[in-house]
């Protein structure tokens, strides 16, 4: 598995405040990689350094094999960026944005028109493609920006909080879109977010960052598994007695009643459901329903930092 982005102790200080603190990021090629953290964690600062628009105070990194300090131009040619804040011109049309981008990135003339058509197709602006951007909805603007970042066929697409400020429905459609992108072409997506759900649903791997440092990094599944805190929820007759009985089992870390349902805390819940069901029928408790809940990335964050990632705000 080769790495397309790799940093060595990359650090950014503003006076004596450390915004990014000695981060070693490893992003596998062709993955969707998430940098998850609360506001002010240093996500934008980290991405800006990787895009060569901000000089690290210490450390360095490589993107697509190019050094971000010494080969800024090559790095820029390898990447597409969607900034956290809008970067569109109100009085140009969507198509003109794409044309302009293609020529700024030196896309050759024989393929230019095809690329633009291809992207317009993908971002589904329809007739709006030839109207001024000021008439676009938030979701359309976002799609245009993402599409624009793809015109020059970058190896890495950076998305800084791609769904910030969008309504839930638009957010889902952007997720869908990002997933498809990554499957359709030779492309690595590095996105930052403070939405747990976004990191969970979209990313192959997630680095959780807080106060400028990576606190842990793995696939969302492994991160949650490591918490060893799945919850099995069971509906049975006479739940109180069932709780008393099942508490004796060795793999049950805790068992209690909540709102008339039995909650069992276990590790690797998916493997234990058969045993629980079997135990219940042996002991003569007919089970009405069983449900398994994995912990969320929020729980992971809480475990490492003792605080919550605030879910809203800018």
């Amino acid at each position: 598995m080769s790495l397309i982005i790799e940093t060595e102790n990359i650090t950014k200080k503003y006076d004596d405040f450390t915004a990014v603190n000695s981060i070693n990021l490893k992003v596998p090629k062709n993955s969707v990689y998430g940098v998850l953290g609360p506001n002010g964690a240093g996500k934008t600062t980290l991405i800006s350094m990787l895009c060569t628009i901000l000089k690290p105070t210490m450390g360095t990194g490589r993107v697509n094999g190019y050094d971000i300090l010494k080969q800024a131009k090559e790095v820029r040619e390898s990447i597409g960026i969607v900034f956290q804040s809008r970067a569109l011109d109100d009085i140009l049309t969507g198509r003109e944005h794409l044309e302009m981008h293609a020529s700024l990135y030196g896309v050759s003339h024989d393929v230019r028109q095809d690329r633009i058509d291809e992207v317009l197709d993908l971002i589904a602006l329809g007739k709006k493609a030839d109207e001024y951007v000021k008439t676009y909805s938030g979701g359309m603007k976002r799609r245009l920006e993402i599409g624009r970042g793809l015109i020059h066929h970058p190896k890495v697409l950076f998305l800084d909080e791609p769904t910030l400020g969008l309504d839930p429905q638009t957010r889902e459609s952007i997720w869908e879109y990002i997933k498809n992108l990554n499957q359709a072409q030779d492309l690595t997506v590095l996105l930052t977010t403070h939405y747990m759900e976004e990191a969970d649903k979209l990313c192959d791997e997630v680095a959780i960052i807080n106060q400028g440092q990576i606190i842990t990094a793995d696939s969302p599944k492994n991160l949650k598994r490591e918490l060893k805190a799945d919850t099995i929820t069971i509906n049975v007759d006479s739940p109180q007695e069932f709780v008393e009985k099942i508490q004796g089992l060795e793999f049950i870390k805790d068992a209690f009643l909540m709102d008339g349902e039995v909650k069992l805390l276990v590790e690797m819940g998916e493997n234990l459901i058969p045993a629980v069901v079997e135990f219940a029928s042996q002991e003569g408790f007919p089970i009405k329903s069983v449900e398994l809940d994995h912990p969320s990335l929020e729980d992971v964050f809480i475990k490492f930092t003792g605080s919550k990632i605030s879910s809203e705000g800018k």
């Binding site: 628009i53 131009k73 820029r76 700024l104």
Partner: peptide
């Protein structure tokens, strides 16, 4: 204005 509306970034980050 380009800076305030963010468009300057699109230009400045280009490899020209």
């Amino acid at each position: 204005m380009d800076r305030q509306y963010g468009f300057l970034k699109e230009i400045l980050v280009a490899p020209i």
